[in-house]
Amino acid sequence: MSQPNVVLHVADVHKRFGGLHALADIDLQVEEGQTHAIIGPNGAGKSTLLNVIIGKLPPSSGQVVFDGTVLTGRKPYQINQLGIARVFQTPEIFGDLSVLHNVMIPALAKRDGAFKLNMFRSLDSETGIREEAEHMLEDVGMLGRREMAAGSLSRGDKRRMELAMCLIQHPRLLLLDEPTAGMSRHDTNTTIELLKKIKSRGMTKVIIEHDMHVVFSLADKISVLAQGRIIADGTPDQVRGNPKVQEAYLGGAH
């Protein structure tokens, strides 16, 4: 059996908030090119886990390793520059700027790094970046809205634009925090279609999701989190058939 290439390794992570053991003994391996879903009931520690991975919260013990580099202790911008992009539960976008500029900014971050005193060049002369952004917007079906202020978009369109902002950086790992939360059925379906489309590009994804329909239509592997612990790990079919999962999550929720 050939050893699969592990891109992200969450190794023995604990996180305590005062007396609350939010994450206990988490060991998670995400393999290259896979879509790995983390599911679990409310308060299971899903968002905490994501925040530990992305560097927003330091773990109480243990570490997160991305492709041989220890992420623990690094700042979010450094983690992004290593090739990890994140989609938030509530889209984090530049509401006052145009859709096109929203997508150009991450492209510039990818090209110019964390800081560049680039003040004597006109943005209009960045034709390469602009074309790249327009291609990306075309991919997510939003080219027609490029001049709109991003803040005035619908929830679904904000999410699509945020995905475009992440994808334009060609991240090696994409983290999605409940990408369809608060969306209508229609917006949820278009988002699933879009995520399936991205999947064919071979990008590794970690997805946190509530919606079982979303999880089972996207994930290659599922880890089930309950009360801060991973109680099950495996393919969607394995997880679906696992009695512990049914008791902790599926049974309770459905």
Binding site: Y77, A85, F94, G95, I105, L108, A114
Partner: peptide, 19 residues
């Protein structure tokens, strides 16, 4: 544009790779 980005959403700037 980065300055405008910082004004609009500094969190997104961090997660987009900007110091």
């Amino acid at each position: 544009m980065m300055l405008k980005g910082i004004k609009t959403n500094q969190t997104r700037m961090h997660y987009t790779g900007f110091n």
